[in-house]
Design a protein around this nucleic acid. Structure first.
Lengths: 226, 226
DNA sequence: CCTTTTCTCGTCATACTGACGATAACGAAT
DNA sequence: ATTCGTTATCGTCAGTATGACGAGAAAAGG
């Protein structure tokens, strides 16, 4: 039996929240095609490599950041026949959520790497679409999972967690109701004995992420239906 | 630049509800590897074919059923290096939800096709895992989308819709609360002027699916957390 | 001090949910 | 025809969650 051959890549939608804005990692391409254009980080899957391992490798290679605290999950696959001028390439996109970290270093194939606010990206290939899908996945996952904590360092305040929700959803939330909701949902966050210091206003208690993987009941954003 | 070559397949998790039980379509393999074992329907993506087009083609080929009323969405991709003895194969799994239909005919590569209740399938390749992922996706999608209607014919009773929920979730629901919930959620179902006839008990009004794509608020199943 | 800022707890009306009673409308059995 | 079993549909009621917002607590800065 014979069948068509494909190349398989992984592409990464890496999201973080910086200065109250949802930002995605993009790299300036250092080789053809789309030389010098912005694109999602990614690369070919190696001959004997698992898909998720390739995603983790690319994340480490192109950003220098992989460690704990973040979150990595498969997003979707994209394989339109003409999506890559080099030939038939199927890409498996992964979604990574990371706490705000120093500006990533450029990787091997990338001339530069930068955090850029989502929206109007103008990326190479079909990466605008992939990014949009990743952002929408993140938005809905914040509703019914405690994944917002993946955007925060290991200890964080309720206000910092609220800032994550507001940045990802692009919608302000009531601090008092949010505080009640988060602290009363079992397993979402667990309080520590430490508080913030030095900032303006009353010091805030620091929390760590809890053990639960789903939010019951969910925190629903305000939609205009759909 | 050189890079490894892959074969790319699509595999289908096709679900329906028969006699109050959630069933998946499986085929008996007609060729090596795993000859004569049960597996998910699927096949290689053609040279100039989109992934979703391949999924629709396989669904039509292997089942003879494709038309409207159902639902097809991408599930996930699986590419462990040793998942297929023929070489490096990445499969893009799709999830199809269909109303109960006559037993499918066997396709070209399949010696037989059958609806089998989910659970303890013992499928070839990593198809048990893919099936489990598909079932879990269906379970959670019933919570926050009106996709349960994809399991029903174009006109259905509230009780039929409830049977879908009970089969997919494996959990009984209160008929009165379910009726209230479904009919009071805007855009979920729209009433017709017709009623069932002939069955036992009071005739039930027939409904069609509504226009909304999300359920607000969602219908939460009873979990044991997670 | 006093003001500003931010965190945290409380209140209250409304909405939603789960549990379950009651009635309506059919077929089948007496 | 009446009764009975069955299923559909509507209502009730208590408990819980939510949105809107008041108010005190605890810091920094004048």
């Amino acid at each position: 039996m014979s069948y068509p051959v494909f190349a398989v890549t992984v592409d990464l939608v890496v999201l973080t929240v910086r200065d109250g804005e949802l930002c995605a990692l993009s790299v300036r391409r250092g080789c053809e095609p789309y030389l010098d254009q912005w694109a999602l980080p990614g690369g070919f899957v190696h001959a004997d490599e698992d898909l998720s391992a390739a995603a983790r490798r690319e994340l480490a290679e192109e950003t220098g950041l992989a460690g704990p605290g973040g979150h990595l999950e498969q997003l979707a696959s994209y394989g339109t026949p003409d999506r890559d001028p080099r030939g038939r390439v199927v890409t498996v996109a992964y979604l990574a959520l990371l706490p705000d970290l120093p500006t990533p270093r450029a990787g091997t194939d990338a001339a530069a790497a930068a955090w850029r606010p989502v929206g109007r990206h103008g990326l190479a290939f079909d990466h605008d679409r992939i990014l949009a899908d990743g952002v929408e996945r993140a938005r809905s996952k914040l509703e019914y999972t405690p994944l917002a904590t993946a955007f925060c360092p290991s200890e964080f305040t309720i206000a910092a967690l609220r800032t994550v929700y507001e940045a990802v959803w692009g919608e302000p939330l009531d601090p008092r109701n949010f505080h009640r909701k988060v602290t009363s949902t079992p397993g979402f966050v667990v309080p520590t004995e430490r508080f913030t210091e030095g900032g303006p206003g009353r010091p805030a208690r620091l929390y760590r992420r809890g053990k639960s993987t789903v939010l019951i009941p969910p925190i629903l954003r305000h939609r205009l239906d759909g």
